[in-house]
């Protein structure tokens, strides 16, 4: 469980996060949704400490992360896996090397054990036979799978994904979403996913926080989201024809 309490963050005097409080639950895929530019990425990066917050606090299972020094933070960071929006794979390393990387840096495994673990993770994301490809040679879906495999290599307790299915075709997007949900449930981890895709929300939104212009505007789950009477949320949810039909069907 990750608790975010009264978090504020501004860049050069411009407030991007306004007093955000939220709880991300263990064993669930916790979604952060909102329009482009609403502050989802900044929120995610603040939670994992890539952005220093101006005020408020963040705690990981009761451990006050935002008040730790950098050595203590490092400890927690090794329990965190992150899938960046563009994958952020190391482009001078192959897919296998990318997944091996955290193991080489932080585990005491032998080479053979690392290989075994890396192949296990690649297997888990259904990416076999692509070991020696470089990221530039891999398809978008393969890159996302690799990024997920790298993120889970060290058995994280917390998994963060920034728009994991952006840039993917609808079929691959759903496969990746489902994969994230499966991993979350299998390992009972706390997963936080940024998205602006209503498909993902309906597919995997165990909890949903709606960010509007840097504020937490609404929270609930994927069933409640359709019947909410929040104006800004409705504008976001029913922007496309598909969701309007879903709602009409339900009624």
């Amino acid at each position: 469980m990750i608790e975010v309490t009264n978090v504020c963050k501004s860049f050069a005097g411009r407030e991007v996060l306004k007093n955000i409080s939220h709880v991300f639950e263990q064993g669930k895929t916790n979604l952060i949704i909102g329009q482009s530019g609403s502050g989802k990425t900044v929120l995610l990066k603040s939670v994992i400490g890539l952005h220093a917050i101006d005020s408020g606090s963040i705690s990981y299972d009761g451990r006050a992360f935002s008040h730790m020094n950098s050595t203590e933070k490092k400890q927690i960071r090794q329990e965190i896996g992150m899938v960046f929006q563009g994958g952020a794979l190391f482009d001078s390393s192959t897919i296998l090397e990318n997944v091996m990387f955290p193991l080489q840096m932080f585990s005491t495994m032998t080479k053979a054990e690392m290989l075994k673990r890396a192949h296990f993770c690649l297997d888990r994301v259904n990416l076999v036979g692509a070991d020696s490809l470089y990221p530039a040679e891999a398809s978008g879906g393969m890159q996302k799978r690799t990024a997920i495999a790298r993120a889970i290599a060290l058995n994280p307790k917390y998994l963060f994904c920034d728009e994991p299915n952006s840039g993917l075709d609808p079929i691959t997007a759903i496969v990746i979403d489902k994969l994230i949900r499966e991993i979350t449930i299998d390992y009972n981890i706390t997963t936080v996913v940024n998205t602006h895709d209503m498909n993902s929300v309906m597919e995997i939104g165990d909890t949903v926080a709606f960010i509007y212009k840097g504020e937490k505007w609404w929270n609930g789950n994927r069933h409640e989201i359709i019947n909410s009477d929040n104006k800004e949320l409705n504008e976001f949810v029913f922007a496309g024809e598909l969701m309007k039909k879903v709602k009409a069907n339900q009624e």
């Binding site: 890539l50 933070k73 960046f84 563009g86 952020a88 190391f90 482009d91 990387f101 955290p102 840096m105």
Partner: peptide
């Protein structure tokens, strides 16, 4: 610079490197 804009540097940092 490429590693910075493609978030590879963030990826290193978040691993605790």
């Amino acid at each position: 610079g490429t590693m910075r804009v493609t978030e590879q540097i963030d990826a290193l940092e978040i691993m605790g490197i």
